[in-house]
Design a protein around this nucleic acid. Sequence first.
DNA 1: CCATGTGAAGGTATTCACAGCC
DNA 2: GGCTGTGAATACCTTCACATGG
Lengths: 227, 227
Amino acid sequence: MMYHKIPDETVRRLPIYLRGLMVSADQGHEHISSQALADFVGVQSWQIRKDFSYFGDFGTRGVGYPIGKLAREIRRILRLDVIRRAALVGVGDLGSALLAYPGFGGYGLEIVAAFDIDPEKVGRLINGIRVEDSSQVDTLGERGISLAIVAVPRTEAQSTIDRLAEAGVRGILNFAPCKVAVPGRVKVITLDIAMELARLPYYMPAEGSSEHPPGGQQELAAGSIVT
Amino acid sequence: MMYHKIPDETVRRLPIYLRGLMVSADQGHEHISSQALADFVGVQSWQIRKDFSYFGDFGTRGVGYPIGKLAREIRRILRLDVIRRAALVGVGDLGSALLAYPGFGGYGLEIVAAFDIDPEKVGRLINGIRVEDSSQVDTLGERGISLAIVAVPRTEAQSTIDRLAEAGVRGILNFAPCKVAVPGRVKVITLDIAMELARLPYYMPAEGSSEHPPGGQQELAAGSIVT
DNA sequence: CCATGTGAAGGTATTCACAGCC
DNA sequence: GGCTGTGAATACCTTCACATGG
């Protein structure tokens, strides 16, 4: 195999594969074919083989891919091979739900700090994490936390993110429905939940008539923005 | 302008534009140039012009685009021009947060029903909505609700969605981290929050060294799956 | 002069088909 | 026989540069 830059679209799919590999490993398998993984995650088998071919010859012909080894390699590429600690800013309904969300662990991600501006919430213990006052985000640098989740109202998003960037945070998952500006050393993924739902009617078959464009495509990209 | 099929990537951006147009309208503007909208939503101006050109000549040279008219047209294309009522299944932490989430209204979407399997939760009133027993999802068809949000554990996702599909639901936003199978008449967008966060370390600049591939791209697609 | 709209060029990702290997 | 890995073909999207019109 030659050295290739891994295409962005492939990077986007790697977490999907990783998710599938983890479940398959749970079921006790040690190898999986591109076809089996394809059925499992909803991507075509040749797409999977092509994607994997960008970073090495992992498969064995006639057998498939070794699940453990492949998962390890994907984790390495995505830089999930070290446990990463994350902070949450904004302990409202969504923020609280994220604190309780069990899914991050599988990717080596862990929320270890939470901040809110509301004195009512500061000091409360949620899922084992003590809510701190928002002014304390400045301490994230010293604490070695470089990942943050922002779940504050739209009007507060930019100022919150400015502060996080200043504190040394380098990756932000933003749930506020707006574009935010950040220095080049910081990456932001904006995830606007309502916007995702808003894409749905377009792809739904029409109720009464059948005058609608959308064809039968199976996979589509979503609307997050990475800055 | 000739008739063109609207590219999927353009459709993916339309809600972003709509979001920007709404905010701009709130600020009292009546027209906006592709450049101003570009600065606002984080997409290049020529990309915006190209996108809009797929569905008509809306702009006036030297002036820009009429915000109201354009927003109305985007709504029509995305089929957000009628109020759509949605149901929520799974009133856990995330589900409760979604019930309280104010952002759906801007897109003409409204959660009007909630279901859970837990007898403790059934009957409770959350944000003005009475939680019903999950068995009641069968009534969604008669109630004219064709959109659903699924926020149940992964193990329950497939059975939940089977039932929704049977009840006549045709669009589903799925928060369970797995692929789900549905009949062709149903569209599903899967939004795996942990997976989005998992993409972040890849794009973060390295801590100590600087041996990492990711370039300085500004926009990237995210990982939702539409079936 | 300003800002749109669009052919044409360029780049990237998907899809195919099959050679190569276990 | 089954499954991987990949060059080549295709399709799609982005980007540019500029003609066009208010």
